[in-house]
Simulated scan of single mutants.
Amino acid sequence: MIKNDEIKEFAHRPQECMAALLPVRDALEVLNGRWKLPILITLSDRPKRFKEISKDINGITDKMLSKELKDLEINKLVTRTVYDTFPPTVEYARTEHSQSLTNVIMALKDWGTLHRKEIIGK
């Protein structure tokens, strides 16, 4: 984990600063947008079908959900399993790799709570 002192040191070494920012950029690229984290959170407890995810996330359109699920699948954060039924059943689940985001999600939640209190007092 990078500490405040380490961040200050990067300011004096631009090449090292850029090298340290690359993984952060990668992470933000994968998790960008309004919907990816809510999708991962709703899939935390169990695999779900498309309509279940859609109902869990207020305001997401089916088109956007489909796009975001594809992006998450490409980045190996979600798996898509098609069952041989009629009509076909499709379930989405978090991958083991996506479980490594749990601490990140919790840290963002904690920071968001602090930030909310700082900005709006709630």
Rank of each mutant, 00 (worst) to 15 (best):
W35S: 00
L28T: 01
I119W: 11
C17L: 12
H115I: 04
A19Y: 15
L101A: 01
D110W: 11
E52N: 06
K3M: 10
R116V: 04
T102R: 15
D84N: 13
K48R: 13
E6A: 04
R80K: 15
L65V: 06
L101G: 02
I120Q: 12
S98C: 03
E68H: 01
C17K: 08
E96K: 15
D5F: 14
E52D: 09
R94W: 04
T81P: 05
T95Y: 00
M1E: 12
R94C: 08
L31V: 07
D71S: 12
K63C: 03
R46P: 15
V104G: 00
S66I: 00
R34K: 09
E9C: 02
V24D: 02
A93K: 14
A27E: 07
S100G: 05
P88F: 15
S66W: 00
I120K: 11
I2T: 04
R80G: 01
L40W: 01
R25P: 00
N103T: 14
L114A: 10
E9Q: 06
A107Y: 03
H115F: 07
S98V: 06
K70M: 06
E16H: 08
F86P: 13
D84S: 11
V82T: 12
L72Q: 05
L114S: 10
R46H: 15
L65M: 07
E9W: 04
K48L: 09
K3H: 09
L31D: 02
P87C: 01
A93V: 02
C17W: 10
R13P: 00
R94I: 08
T89R: 09
T42N: 10
T102W: 03
R25F: 03
R94H: 06
S44G: 11
K63G: 03
K63W: 08
L101F: 14
I120V: 13
F86T: 05
P23G: 02
T102I: 15
G112N: 06
F50H: 04
T85Y: 09
E16T: 00
V78H: 08
L77S: 02
L69G: 00
D71V: 09
L65K: 09
V78N: 05
P14R: 07
Q15Y: 12
K67G: 01
T89F: 05
D5I: 05
E118Y: 08
F10K: 01
D56N: 12
I7C: 02
I60Y: 08
S54Y: 07
I74R: 08
P47Y: 02
V82N: 03
L21H: 06
P23I: 02
P14F: 05
S98Y: 13
A11W: 12
S100V: 14
L21G: 06
A19W: 14
R49L: 02
S100C: 07
S100T: 15
Y83H: 14
L72W: 04
G59T: 02
D110Q: 11
I74N: 11
L101V: 03
V30N: 01
A27R: 11
R25K: 06
